[in-house]
């Protein structure tokens, strides 16, 4: 039951990405290319999504635990450190280069286009190599995602 609800959350997330226009790289690039034929509409995706989340998450966290898990697992790091800054910088460059980010690329897998497959493979390779390298450098067997468990 828990897994089904998680699966359905993923389905709903994909529908949100599709309806909002985030699955169309061309639209994303024309949002980021502010000097071209600028299309500002994607601002409202982030606004709508984060405002919805802001409204709801307070009520959810008032519960003692999630419906199908032992506890809430939320990021606790507050440091503005070099990995955050440099990683976000690299991520943005890749995002602006083609117009794909991780969620939309996975949703677009069904199209079977070569470009989508190339992007996903390169992205997965990048993620995996970073995980391996990072946990070796830190000597952290758990990957060190900076998470602690609430309650």
């Amino acid at each position: 039951m828990g897994l089904l609800m998680i699966f359905l959350s993923g389905v709903l997330f994909a529908l949100g990405l599709g309806i909002s226009g985030m699955t169309q790289p061309e639209k994303v690039v024309s949002f980021l290319n502010v000097v071209g034929d600028w299309d500002p509409s994607l601002i409202f995706v982030m606004l709508g999504a984060s405002m919805t989340y802001l409204t709801g998450y307070v009520f959810i966290l008032k519960r003692s635990k999630p419906a199908f898990a032992r506890s809430f697992t939320l990021p606790t790091s507050r440091d503005i450190d070099r990995p955050l800054v440099f990683g976000s910088l690299l991520f943005g460059l890749g995002w602006g280069l083609v117009g794909f980010c991780p969620g939309p690329a996975l949703v677009a897998l069904v199209t079977g286009y070569d470009s989508v497959l190339i992007f996903l493979l390169a992205m997965g390779f990048g993620m995996y190599s970073f995980e391996v390298l990072d946990s070796r450098l830190k000597g952290d067997p758990d990957g060190g995602a900076g998470l602690i468990i609430k309650r």
């Binding site: 910088l89 890749g94 280069l97 690329a105 996903l120 992205m123």
Partner: peptide, 11 residues
């Protein structure tokens, strides 16, 4: 782009 997005988002 895929490489940058993969490495950057994890970092």
């Amino acid at each position: 782009a895929g490489l940058l997005v993969g490495i950057g988002s994890r970092m």
